[in-house]
Design a protein around this nucleic acid. Structure first.
Lengths: 406, 406
DNA sequence: ACTATTTTTTTCGAGACTTAAATAAAATAG
DNA sequence: CTATTTTATTTAAGTCTCGAAAAAAATAGT
């Protein structure tokens, strides 16, 4: 399978690196681009002047000589930046009963935010359509003074998505299967649409925010009502052949017929670690009883507090969850070598109670590589990360659809 | 991380596709190369004539117009082929007590084979060095009539290898750790050396032999004394960050303290599926007892025969092994989507007994994708596959070291 | 105020690469 | 022995990157 055949593929690739530098650093001069990319000044000059004449880049020689560059000798640097007017994107995050959205311009600036509550479990496909379209329309209506064309819509969803990023195959937020969210929005607004798994987007955000910690190999594990994972291996977001994959929560914990998982199977990790699993255990219900549909967030906070206060069923439940996590991580690390893990979401409130059990399970691992010293980081707010990650990847995809990226 | 691309990367890449076509099809004309690669005739002509003048390719216009092309109208095709004289490679496969080796020329032709038995468990590092060097020397000595320079040495080993392909980190064949096999052979023969995991090489061979079945996503699972896996995802051999990884055999099967694995942990899949585990179970020993070092191959054949003949402890052992495999596959498929699996090695003799249990465990899987219909294929002879895979990848690496490949 | 220096950006020429089109080569068919 | 057919090579044109030289635009110093 030949990867690189044409000479203009080279240009596309280099153009993409340059845009990526601009997106990360905001305002950058050509010399700085030379430093970051390793391209020659000549090439950078050619490519950037092309982008400027296409309208993708703005060149601001006059204004905003930022403080550190001022008063230096020599010809002053001309800072370049992405042209916000190129277009805007709508980034939505869809989870149980909740839809939040950002409107951002091409430079990444957030122009507006909005959110919406609706009963996702009762919603029909038409309802989903209604809420999604209304949200896009509402955000776009805020641009009357300065109209920027809508260029891309993306949705980060809690659930399993097809590998092509068009359909939500399964989600805890609804009983419906195979929701064609991509097609639906595409028909309405006639722009490319991309549906992504929320955990993958959280991982993307971590990589963006803190590439030193979350570089080429790491995982973001979402501890919420469900258990999800976004996996980055060798710098690439891991996606299955058919689905968004990396369903860490549905690796097997219990030997035979274990606790009942929301997915209908028995023994999944999620059936021990998810909010509903902790709740079920604490409430004294049988582990094979049906999980409750919804738990009041404050009740989970309260539960975690009680677990911290004294020994008891709550703390035992988190210990058990820790064992399940540890065992699944041991299996995961056998497959892919130990990597840094970020735990994200409400579940991290009791992470200190789970961590000893996790580390205990990892004392040795099958790969003969020491896994007990793996770094764990916790982030309680998942929503913000998902939004950010979704936005960044969407802008990259936008570049590609405009024939710029590789 | 900007991937810097130069214009000559294009040439390298295209050169590589051409060589790959030649390696797969043996004798190919330029027009056929055009068809296979999609490159223009002009490009193919330029690149091939370059390779011919470098001596890498042979152009045989006169001899061997093969039967089907003969008697066609028009200018006859000039078949090109790789020049065997370019160099030769030594491909060794190292497993418990056994070392086998092939000597092959640049076109892939096997010039000689040899094998050697030695007590790997008793062997010191110096012993390993001795056997490996002697094997290379012995094979090379057969080239006296027609000397071809040695260009590359590779070893497929049963065990965990570092990601760089130089060191054998751990292996069941020895108590020693971190054997620098690569460095050792490199010092002796001053050619590049590459150490690879045997399962990865078996997977490579399957992909080579039968790309229709084993295309971009599949796994080769070795059922032998140990349990290993070679994983191919999106057409790329999966390698960990530090090690050859994909230690499927050390995913966790048993809940708490389960059977003792050869790696020192408890509950690994291998501790239920490996030859020694079956043997231990059948012999009535405690599952936490130390596994026996070595089992007579004919004894395992006999054991499998007894399992087939009638119900009994032997059949129960294989059923248990099937459950362990099934559970681990369920976890694996949760992570990476269901994929085709090739089972390789002596363990497949009783695969029919294990399969129902495996399929049973896969009735549903965490990824909401139907996994029970996944295709399984069995190959009893692992040695041949490992050799073949190792040879093919080695020739590709050789191209790269000669500045040809990408 | 004017020149020298410094730093950044652009321009120019060279070297590589691919491709389409034209040309040359080497067979068979009649 | 010529016409036809198929294959390979050459030529010309269009990209791409890069190094070096040139141009641009500021500050430093006298």
């Amino acid at each position: 399978m030949p990867v690189l055949v044409r000479t203009d593929d080279v240009r596309r690739q280099n153009t993409r690196s340059i845009i990526q530098v601009l997106r990360r650093h905001g305002c950058v001069s050509r010399t700085e681009i030379v430093e970051y990319t390793g391209l020659s000044p000549a090439t950078v000059s050619t490519i950037t002047s092309g982008l400027i004449s296409e309208g993708l880049l703005l060149s601001r020689s006059e204004l905003s000589q930022s403080q550190d560059t001022v008063n230096r000798r020599g010809r002053p640097r001309i800072t370049l930046s992405l042209n916000p007017q190129v277009g805007c994107i709508v980034v939505m995050v869809l989870s149980i009963n909740k839809l939040t959205a950002w409107l951002q311009d091409y430079s990444g600036e957030i122009l507006a935010k909005a959110d919406d509550h609706f009963e996702s479990r009762q919603a029909s496909l038409a309802d989903f359509e209604h809420y999604l379209l209304r949200m896009v329309t509402r955000l776009m209506s805020q641009l009357t003074t300065n109209p920027i064309p809508l260029r891309f819509i993306s949705i980060g969803v809690q659930g399993v998505v097809d590998a092509g990023g068009q359909t939500m195959l399964w989600s805890p937020m609804t009983q419906l299967l195979d929701l064609p969210l991509g097609e639906l929005l595409h028909r309405a607004f006639n722009v490319p649409v991309w549906v992504a798994n929320d955990c993958n987007m959280a991982a993307e955000a971590l990589h963006w925010q803190d590439p030193a910690r979350f570089g080429d190999d790491f995982a973001a594990i979402l501890l919420g009502s469900g258990i999800g994972m976004g996996l980055v291996l060798k710098g690439r977001r891991f996606i299955g052949r058919q689905s968004s994959a990396a369903e860490f929560g549905h690796m097997v914990h219990a030997s035979d017929e274990g606790a009942l998982c929301r997915c209908g199977q028995y023994g999944c990790v999620e059936a021990y670690v998810g909010d509903y699993a902790i709740w079920r255990r604490v409430s004294g219900a049988d582990e094979q009883s049906l999980p409750v549909d919804e738990i009041d967030p404050t009740a989970m906070i309260d539960l975690a507090r009680r677990a911290h206060e004294n020994e008891g069923i709550e703390r035992a439940a988190y210990r058990e969850a820790g064992r399940a996590l540890g065992k699944a991580l041991r299996s995961l690390f056998a497959l892919i070598d130990p990597i840094t893990i970020a735990f994200i979401g409400g579940g991290v409130r009791a992470f200190d109670l789970m961590e000893p059990e996790i580390r205990n399970a990892l004392r040795h691992n099958g790969n003969m590589l020491e896994a007990s010293e793996v770094s764990f980081y916790c982030y309680e707010d998942s929503q913000e990360l998902i939004h950010l990650g979704c936005a960044m990847t969407t802008l990259q995809r936008l570049d590609r659809t405009m024939g710029v990226g590789g």
